[in-house]
Write a protein that binds this DNA or RNA. Structure first.
Lengths: 360, 360
DNA sequence: GGTTCCCGTGGATACGTTTTCACGTATCTC
DNA sequence: GAGATACGTGAAAACGTATCCACGGGAACC
């Protein structure tokens, strides 16, 4: 456990100044002879520049922050893999935080990142604009993935992913449509990578409609407000608000919400689950209540997770490219500063398996 | 986006020296009056000590490293959640790396952690002792979770989790039994948190035996050597080595291994999958080959993941406490230095669902 | 009342790096 | 051949913190 060699050691051993060593290793100019000598000495001493010194000097941590609600949710696992893949190719370390869907924990983690001088973070936000204000105020580069924080002064018409772009593979640099009410809290001006929820939900609802379903429910979790809105829009007025229910994030609460939904509204014949945890809960709750899928109730689940295919029956899903979303979000956060990036919307795909059938 | 206040600013505003501010914030001694004044000023300036400066000063990064093979694998998601929970309660940031089951990537990530001066790592190792040598040589505190690196000079009798402790909830500070051959490569002296693989596999094999199965296969992935050994021991000699097959880590390769196994040995009647990705592959491959579970083939899968219950049929599993393993591993790595810790073995549990039946 | 001890305090230093600045030499140009 | 230009180089400063050390003053003790 010898202590690591410093740049000074290398400089001394190579008979040059520290500045020269730094230049050689940073790709600066140096004469071929000295460059070679420095490189040889550095290799021989197994010298690795200390990120600590460098970061302190340039007053920023090289790393990226990554905040997700729950790593047990396979979709976020995919998203993380995407971020990590991109970060690795950029040589950036990633510090990870799991918020558990709790804004307070999220705020705490933001504070931790601030303390670490991590100035670039990609997050699946849990808290609202207020939670993220400190990060932005500190000049952090933030990119949201998968969702946006709820907006204080909501008006259903403004949606950063304005959708209706079935052919458009991705949308970069959209100008926000619709004027923001003067008094309302300004929405966060933060780039984001989102799935085309509106199109995804609409396709699913149309599909279910085509199978004859009229009473369709939406089962959401925290952060699924955009999807719920898309659902409301897709089923069209009048919206039966009793058929739009939310869990609070935990698997238990998702199960409770699903079970409650099935019991209070036995007339429903199809449900759209806003995430894979909700879908899982729906399957479990249906089974517990002796509702057969798809005979008694049809189910479409957001997120194409590997196990969707293993289910009984295999689950029809709205697939969103989790890994890609992570990768692109990371690209955005890395590119930031060079060019101001805006929202990116990735396409969803309805993958039809066996969990939907005609209305009984 | 004002720049952050430094300790100097606080000192100046409070009319004291920087040393005093540092002491107050680090819990050192100070008079009540100055302490109060400093605290007030710090709060008012929204001062947060820079981890960069502190870390440089004390020549270490506060943070923890966490290396897992694949976040898409739900078990590792659980493990990560455990680590993060423990790390958060200790106020330590966690930098995450995903090795993809590739020793080369793992080595690269270790190098990255070294560069960041992260001196404490918890890892699900992918590479061997050689991969980890640089980390140990640099004085890193390493704790392995879920598995150990393969040992150069293997002898089947030495197993850090000596098992046979069905009642013992956990085993702390076991002395390695059996002498290490003189010439053989010394096993890494690294604390670890493992599941009681031997007991888990043995229980599963006994269960299958009780159902009448005689040709039982083991389907493993990288790092499942201990489980394979436990399997060999459980079925007892002679071991039909054709029934012990491995995938390389990817879902595709797992599927290929499972499919190949089923096709080359149609006489097998039960399979033990060494991990949930392998279990998933086995279900898929069986279905593709029109083998019904459990009628034609029985299946026991390692890892109790939420979707095991959703499967058709619900999967009988060997549950290991992923979250706990992460939490304990993190505790170990934090405690290290205070007291030299050794291997911890956590119990497994056979959860019987519907994927096993009597031999047809 | 004088000496000793202790505690609160501030100045200075070190951590390892990048970057600026200035210096010297070698080459080019007129 | 003398001036100007370019380039390679090293000394030094700065980043924000923790900690060592020295200094001062008040209290306690003899």
């Amino acid at each position: 456990m010898e202590k690591r060699a410093t740049i000074k050691d290398v400089a001394e051993a190579a008979g040059v100044g520290v500045a020269t060593v730094s230049r050689v290793l940073s790709g600066g100019s140096a004469s071929p002879s000295t460059r070679e000598r420095v490189l040889a000495v550095a290799a021989q001493l197994d010298y690795r520049p200390s990120a600590l010194g460098r970061n302190l000097r340039q007053r920023r941590t090289g790393g990226l922050g990554l905040l997700v609600p729950d790593l047990t949710d396979t979709f976020y696992g995919q998203l993380c893999e995407g971020v990590l893949a991109c970060a690795r190719s950029a040589g950036e370390p990633v510090v990870l935080g799991s918020t558990g869907g709790d804004p307070e924990q999220e705020a705490e983690l933001i504070g931790m990142l601030l303390e670490q001088s991590v100035d670039r973070v990609i997050a699946v936000p849990t808290g609202d604009a207020e939670t993220w204000a400190p990060a932005l105020r500190a000049g952090m580069t933030v990119v949201f993935a998968d969702r946006l924080p709820p907006e204080a002064g909501r008006d259903g018409d403004r949606d950063p992913a304005e959708s209706a772009l079935d052919d458009l593979m991705l949308l970069d640099g959209v100008a926000p449509r619709g004027r923001v009410p003067e008094g309302a809290a300004r929405p966060l001006d933060v780039p984001a990578v989102l799935a085309d929820d509106r199109a995804g939900i609409r396709t699913a609802v149309r599909y279910l409609r085509g199978l004859g379903h009229r009473r369709i429910a939406f089962l959401g979790g925290p952060g699924h407000d955009r999807r719920a809105d898309a659902f409301r829009e897709a089923v069209g007025p009048p919206v039966d608000e009793e058929l739009v229910v939310f869990g609070t994030g935990s698997r238990d609460s998702a199960y409770a919400a699903a079970s409650g939904l099935f019991q209070s509204r036995p007339d429903l014949s199809a449900v759209v689950a806003g995430g894979n945890v909700l879908g899982e809960a729906a399957v479990l709750a249906a089974r517990e209540l002796d509702l057969r899928v798809p005979k008694d109730v049809s189910l479409v689940m957001y997120d194409d997770v590997p196990w969707a295919e293993l289910c009984a029956p295999p689950l029809t899903v709205i697939a969103q490219p989790g890994r890609d979303m992570g990768y692109r979000a990371c690209e955005l956060v890395l590119r930031e500063g060079t060019r101001r990036a805006r929202t990116v919307v990735l396409p969803t795909e309805l993958i039809i398996r066996g969990s939907c059938g005609p209305r009984r």
